[in-house]
Design a protein around this nucleic acid. Structure first.
Lengths: 186, 186
DNA sequence: ACCTGAACACCGTTCAAGT
DNA sequence: ACCTGAACACCGTTCAAGT
């Protein structure tokens, strides 16, 4: 008589996501995940190859969620406005799930599935194309996403603690990058 | 009769740095460090509070080394040229010691000593001031360092694997940021 | 077919005992 | 004063045995 399934891959990834965010990566143990989904640790290996693979699944789920968030940003007729709104949505997401966000960039960065990242940043590529022209769209999008990732990474790492207005610095970045990409005066 | 010292904090941090770079963060264990400096693991606790503190020491040593690297960049009369040279030196350092570099930004980022980071990025702040004026120097430096950190972080994480010329994208970023900061046309 | 306890190899860390 | 072996609590992971 087959034992009934007592959990699922989805439940496991969700549990891991929650533990990561509330307790940090070091406390994201197989035992903690197992306990949360109501099973013993060895059973997890029926659905997940190992801890590293589980962490990768969490990172990919995070990229997907981020992409969804960006696609939900309403678009206007002005690409400059859109650029700012996308950047703010991006930052808001990172603030809401900082540990997961760090997972994507951070050290020991899990080699992320490329298609997933492309999917997530598609809206940004569109706006970059509107702003910088199709020729320079990829370079422009990379300039902008690099800045955004870097800014948020430094912010989460506490690298901006010297004071100064972080909000203002973020808006300064949006404004000047929009200028730089569109070829306007700064 | 007191036992002679068989190692030192410096030797321990250096050993940790080497293991981190060659084997990765997960393999940077107290036992591995102890073996490399010729001592048993418990002895490390005479010089270091715990593993986390050791990792933090490595991160700080990395920030110091990076600062030294940036200060060694020769300066010219043209701040735009200097900006590019600093960015390339920064990137070269990250490529030479990727694991340590990630430590500074990445997930579980060790709350870095602020003064150290400021020290490391001092040259960039100077050039930013020349380019954007003293008023906007801090915002400009943050824009630039955020981009640089983000670009390299994404590069190391393999987020640029879609192809396209990464060198060109980096140079594109330098050029357009210099324009944006100095208020020139792009 | 899935779940479990037991087991293994490996950590980080503490501490009493050595010199 | 520093170093060590032994010990503890905790991991990730495997596997034979249960249902």
């Amino acid at each position: 008589m087959p034992t009934p399934e007592r959990t699922s891959l989805d439940e496991i990834v969700t549990a891991a996501r929650e533990i990561l965010e509330s307790d940090g990566l070091a406390r994201l143990t197989m035992q903690a995940v197992a306990e949360r989904v109501g099973v013993r640790a060895p059973s997890l290996y029926k659905r997940v190859r190992n801890r590293e693979a589980l962490i990768k699944l969490v990172a990919e789920a995070t990229a997907d969620a981020m992409g969804e968030q960006l696609r939900a940003v309403p678009r206007t007729a002005d690409p400059r406005t859109d650029l700012g709104n996308l950047a703010r949505a991006f930052r808001a997401f990172a603030h809401r799930r900082p540990a997961a966000y760090r997972l994507i960039l951070g050290p020991e960065a899990v080699p992320m599935d490329v298609a997933r990242l492309a999917e997530a940043s598609a809206p940004l590529l569109e706006v970059a194309a509107e702003l910088a022209g199709p020729e320079e769209a990829l370079n422009a999008a990379r300039l902008f996403t690099a800045w955004g990732n870097g800014f948020i990474g430094m912010e989460l790492a506490g690298a901006f603690n010297l004071g100064g207005d972080i909000e203002a610095a973020f808006e300064y970045g949006i404004r000047h990058l929009a200028d730089a990409l569109s070829g306007h005066r700064a």
